[in-house]
Amino acid sequence: MSRVRIVTDSTTRFSTPSFIEHYLVTIAPTIVRCGSVRIQDGPQVDLAMMHRLLEDCQTNPTTEAPTQAQLAQIYAQLQSSADQILSIHTSAGLSDAVANAHAASQQFLGRLDIQVIDSKSASIGLGLLVQAAAEAASRGEEFDTLVHIVRGMIPRLYMIFFLSDLYYLVRYGLISRSQAILGNMLGIVSFLTMEEGRMIPMEKVRSRSRAIDKLIEFVCEFSDVEHLAILQANSRPSQESVSIMDRLRVYHPSTPITTVSYGPFISTIVGLDSLGVVVLEAERSTP
């Protein structure tokens, strides 16, 4: 049996909901908090609780990454069944999970080989990396091979969202409050993309239907795609997501397409009514 274990954090989403039941993956908790109320994110958690949280919340919700102590405890618990741990986490540009994992791993120097990887992604982008690592471990691949697989996938991951509420851009200092108020009045929809592990603003369009067209255009820029994921607010595919999926299949008929809820953590960045896509570009074969 493999002596390699995979650790990640609970902002992750998987392309197959039952994945976690079949692979040796340990998930460290990420919390969304408002005052004394807290929600623990997780692969099966949708935004229903976030709606209730925001109804009673008088301030902006905050997020709490797995702490150094929590990660050290997980590593210690796995030590009896593992010689090597691959700890893959939400982008360091969005969360302290990577920094806390690095700090926790220092406690095990000389006793346990722990490799910490910054996914430079989140949600199902992170999940695709975790799945690839866990599947490779189950095949008996060497630890160095797992690290190589994950690091090789990171530059091929792309994420883009559109936001129907510009207030979330104010929270991150990307626009002023007055710009958000005016933009919301005019129905402006703004795009964010993941670049070098950080969400950065892209262009703006004048309607949600045009924003959906731009999502399709973004995906169509890729000629060869290994996996596509639609990130939505709902846990079940919405009519909007199904329509997007049908349009994407015209361009990428053989590519697996997944729909997932992006969950509480991502909602603090993009809001409760956003849509996004994650593209895992196919690996280019070397001549």
Rank of each mutant, 00 (worst) to 15 (best):
Ile149Arg: 07
Arg236Asn: 09
Val205Gly: 05
Ile175Tyr: 03
Ile149Pro: 04
Gly187Cys: 10
Gly140Pro: 03
Arg198Glu: 14
Val225Pro: 06
Gln232Trp: 03
Ser207Gln: 05
Ser190Gly: 14
Leu182His: 13
Ser164Asn: 11
Arg177Thr: 14
Ala137Val: 01
Leu215Val: 04
Leu163Ala: 01
Glu195Ala: 13
Ser138Tyr: 03
Pro237Cys: 12
Arg177Cys: 03
Met159Phe: 07
Tyr167Gln: 15
Leu169Met: 15
Leu163Val: 11
Glu226Ala: 14
Gln232His: 10
Arg236Phe: 10
Val147Pro: 02
Arg139His: 10
Glu240Ala: 14
Leu228Thr: 03
Leu163Arg: 02
Gly127Phe: 03
Leu186Arg: 14
Ser119Cys: 07
Ser164Leu: 03
Ile124Gly: 01
Ala137Gly: 01
Gly125Glu: 02
Gly187Tyr: 12
Glu240Tyr: 02
Val242Gly: 11
Ser164Ile: 04
Gly183Glu: 13
Ser241Glu: 09
Ser209Cys: 03
Arg206Trp: 10
Val150Lys: 00
Ser138Val: 00
Phe143Asn: 04
Gly183Arg: 09
Met199Thr: 06
Asn234Thr: 12
Gly127Cys: 09
Ala233Lys: 13
Phe143Ile: 05
Ile154His: 00
Glu196Ala: 12
Gly187Glu: 07
Lys120Gln: 13
Gly125Ser: 04
Leu192Pro: 10
Tyr172Leu: 07
Ser235Phe: 08
Arg171Gln: 06
Gly197Ala: 03
Val170Ala: 11
Val147Lys: 11
Ile181Cys: 04
Val205Asp: 02
Ser209Val: 08
Leu128Thr: 07
Met202Leu: 14
Ser119Gln: 04
Leu128Trp: 03
His227Glu: 13
Leu192Asn: 08
Val205Cys: 12
Gln232Leu: 03
Leu182Ile: 15
Ile181Ser: 09
Ala133Pro: 01
Ile160Gly: 00
Ala137Glu: 05
Ser138Arg: 14
Tyr158Trp: 13
Glu142Asn: 07
Ser238Trp: 05
Met185Asp: 03
Arg236Pro: 00
His148Phe: 01
Phe191Ala: 00
Gly187Trp: 05
Ile175Lys: 01
Tyr158Met: 11
Ser241Pro: 06
Ala122Thr: 15
Leu163Gln: 02
Glu221Asn: 14
Phe222Val: 10
Arg198Ser: 09
Gly187Thr: 05
Phe191Arg: 06
Asp165Cys: 09
Gly187Lys: 08
Ala136Ser: 00
Met185Thr: 13
Val189Leu: 06
Lys204Thr: 10
Ile181Asn: 11
Tyr167Glu: 15
Arg139Leu: 12
Phe143Arg: 09
Leu157Ile: 08
Glu240Asn: 11
Tyr168Trp: 08
Asp165Ile: 05
Arg139Met: 11
Leu215Gly: 02
Tyr172Val: 08
Gln239Val: 02
Arg139Pro: 00
Arg210Pro: 03
Ile175Met: 05
Ser123Phe: 00
Val225Leu: 12
Arg236Tyr: 11
Ile188Lys: 15
Met199Ala: 09
Leu182Gly: 08
Cys220Leu: 13
Ser119Val: 04
Leu157Met: 13
Met153Ala: 02
Ala211Ile: 01
Ser190Cys: 10
Leu169Gln: 05
Val150Trp: 02
Ile200Thr: 14
Leu231Arg: 00
Thr193Cys: 09
Gln239Lys: 14
Glu196Ser: 10
Ser138Asn: 14
Arg210Phe: 01
Glu196Lys: 06
Ile244Gln: 05
Asn184Ser: 11
Ala211Val: 00
Ser241Ala: 15
Gln232Val: 03
